[in-house]
Design a protein around this nucleic acid. Sequence first.
DNA 1: CCCGGACCTTGACGTGGATCAAACCCTTGC
DNA 2: GCAAGGGTTTGATCCACGTCAAGGTCCGGG
Lengths: 245, 245
Amino acid sequence: MPSFDLGRAREPAAQTEMNPCGACPVRSLTVCAALEAEELRRLAEILQNVRFDASHTLFSEGDTADILYNVTSGTVKLYKLLPDGRRQITGFLLPGDFLGLSVNETYAYTAETVTPTTLCRFPRKKIEALLEEFPKMQKRLFSMASNELAAAQDQMLLLGRKTAKEKICSFLLLLSQRASRRGHKENPVHVPMSRADIADYLGLTTETVSRTFTQLKTSRVISLLEGSKVQIMDMDQMLDLAEGA
Amino acid sequence: MPSFDLGRAREPAAQTEMNPCGACPVRSLTVCAALEAEELRRLAEILQNVRFDASHTLFSEGDTADILYNVTSGTVKLYKLLPDGRRQITGFLLPGDFLGLSVNETYAYTAETVTPTTLCRFPRKKIEALLEEFPKMQKRLFSMASNELAAAQDQMLLLGRKTAKEKICSFLLLLSQRASRRGHKENPVHVPMSRADIADYLGLTTETVSRTFTQLKTSRVISLLEGSKVQIMDMDQMLDLAEGA
DNA sequence: CCCGGACCTTGACGTGGATCAAACCCTTGC
DNA sequence: GCAAGGGTTTGATCCACGTCAAGGTCCGGG
C-alpha cells in the first residue's frame, strides 16, 4: 500500500514561483476565493504545487492526516474498502475541490488520481494556523463542507433507492453540471473514469454499467464519442430518467 | 404537506426560562459546547424551546430555510423523496444533533419527528449574526459538519456495497455507539424507529428488515426485548457481520 | 506489424432481495 | 369484550442485477 510518495512528483519549486495563487485558474471555486491579495500571499508561502500520473495513491485510509490538497487540474477519486475488497467510491474530485479534511488524526478514505493531476499541497498544521487568523477562510471552508454534505445526501438517495438506469443518468447529469460550473461545455460530457470506477461509485458492477450505457445508446438518449466523451442527445428524457419520473 | 406548525407546539416560554442553556443536558455534545457563560446567555436570548409529538413534520424539502434546530430529547428523521414516492432516510438525529443548515435558501430534505421530541429553535438570521461574533462557534459547527461528512461516507459504503445482514448489523452497532457517546447504556440498544424507517434508511424493504431481524435472532446474535430494545448477545460476531469479515 | 494486456462489451445463468399476499399481532376507542 | 387499524412477521413468487465466461477493442512496445 504505497503512501504519499514525493519521489514520483515532478520537482515543483519552479512552478510554485511561476504560478502563484494570483494566477490560479480555479481560485474562484475553492477556499482561496475568500482571500485578499495579502492573505493569498501568506497562503502561497505554505503551499507546494505537485503533479502525479494517473493511478497514483495520494494517501490511504488510516494514514495520519497531516497533508491537505486542493485539486488544480485532473480528477481524483476517494474510496473506502471492506475487508474482502468490496469498494465504494465516495466521490470524484475535480479542479477546485479540496481534500484531506479529517475528524480524527487519520484519513477516513483513500485518495487516488484518476487522470494525471496537479494539486496544491498544504501542511495541515500550517493551514490550521492560517484558519485561526483568517475567519473568512474558515467560513468558506464551512460552506464548502455544507455543499459536500448536501451532495452526500443526494448520493445516499441514489445508492439506496435508484435503479441502475436512474443511477447512470444521474451520474452523467452530475458530471455535466459540475463541468458547466467550472466554465466548461456541459454537453459532450467528459467521462475520464473507467467503467469499474463508475460501478464502484454507483453501487453497481462494470457489466451492469456497460449494459446500461448501450441501452441508453440504443434508445438514442446518449451517444458515445471519441475520447471518453458522452453526448446527451435528449436532455429532457435524461432528466426524467434520472429521477424515475 | 404540513410545514412548520407552531400550533402543535406546547407553549414554551416558561420552559425557556426554567431550562436555560446552563442546565442543558446535551450542551457538551453540540455547538454550545464551545461557548462561555456570557456567550451562552446571548444564545439563550434568541432561542425557543419547543416540543412536538411523534410523526410531526418540522419542515419539508424545498421550504425556505429560516429556522435551525438543535435536538434536546427524542429522535428526528431526515429524508428525501423521489417523484414516485420512493424514500431515502439520510439520517436519524439524536439529542445534541443540529439540523437545518442549508446551502441555498431552502432545506435539502424533510425533517420529521420519530418520537415525541424537544428542540431548541433558532432564527437563521440571528444564528448567522452570532456566528460572525463567535468564531469558536463557527469552528465548532465546522467540526460537527466534518463529522457528519465522515458518517455520510460510511453510509455510502453501507448503501452501495453491503448485504442486508451487514446493513442491519452496522445499523444496530451505530445506534449502540451513539447511545454510549451520549452516556446511555450501549447494550440493550433502544431502537425507536419502525421497520419501515429502518428499511428506508438502509435501502431495503420492511419485509427484508423483518426477515433479517428474525434470522439474527434465530442464530442467537441478538434478541428482541420489551419496549423496542435489542440485546446484542454476541458482540464479536456482530462486529464481524457488520463488515462482512 | 504484430503481440500482450487492460478495458469494455455481450451472453447465459443464478440469486438476493423485491413484490405480492396473507396472517398475526398489538393498541386504542367504543 | 370487541372491532378497527396500524405495524410486524411469514410465505410464495418474481426479477433486476450480479456472477461467470467469452470475445472484442484499443493501445503501447518490441
